[in-house]
Amino acid sequence: MSIFDILGPVMVGPSSSHTAGAVRMGQIVRRLVGGEPVRAKILLAGSFASTGAGHGTPRALVAGLMGFDPDDERIPRSFEIAKERGLAFEFGTVALRDAHPNSALITAVNDRGEQVEVGASSPGGGRIRVFEVDGLPASFSGEVPTLIVRSDDMPGYVSRVTGVIAAQGINMSKLQVERNARGGRALMVIECDQRIPYRVKTAITAIEGIHKVTRLNPGEESK
């Protein structure tokens, strides 16, 4: 832990978990859907549903979807800004089993019609954890360089993807692989020790059956 986890983050109040963490959640959904989100359906769970309004949680989530950082002073006006930018959003509540009390399930659609559904929690201090992508279980925070690969489930694809990473001299620290059915949809989450360069993304995207590759490098937020 850094001393700047003790003093900091610089953030728009009032709550690191319900405001700053909610912005981070929105940001990660933005990265996963890619491009510019034009529609979002946000379902709040637990404490996000019961105390979110007073904490500005909905405004923080929408701000994150537009790529704002947790210290962006436009967060309180995010609804109005979203309307200007053509991002339509709706809110609801959901009961999630086994999820942290501060959680949300977010479905976003981008300007190319691509869609993603993300479940994430905000356990405190502005940090977050994604626990679900497109209905498949996952566990990542984006605090270390992370590659998220959505694809068809097919023989040999794990080795082809990790081969690209190995060829770049990048060390993987954690690898998660999930699928919904044999030959169905698959999700790979790869956490790495080094920053993931753009060429890794393009090389993996070129592999047959790969649908979407997302790079999360800490400190490089989407704008």
Binding site: I6, L7, G8, P9, V10, M11, V12, G13, P14, S15, S16, T19, A20, G56, R59, D71, E73, I75, P76, G125, G126
Partner: peptide, 21 residues
């Protein structure tokens, strides 16, 4: 009050206690 009103603050060590330091 600035924290409660969604202004920019430094968590020190938390947002709720940001006024002391």
């Amino acid at each position: 009050e600035c924290n409660a009103c969604m202004k920019r603050i430094v968590a020190a060590p938390t947002a709720g206690a940001c006024g002391v330091l």
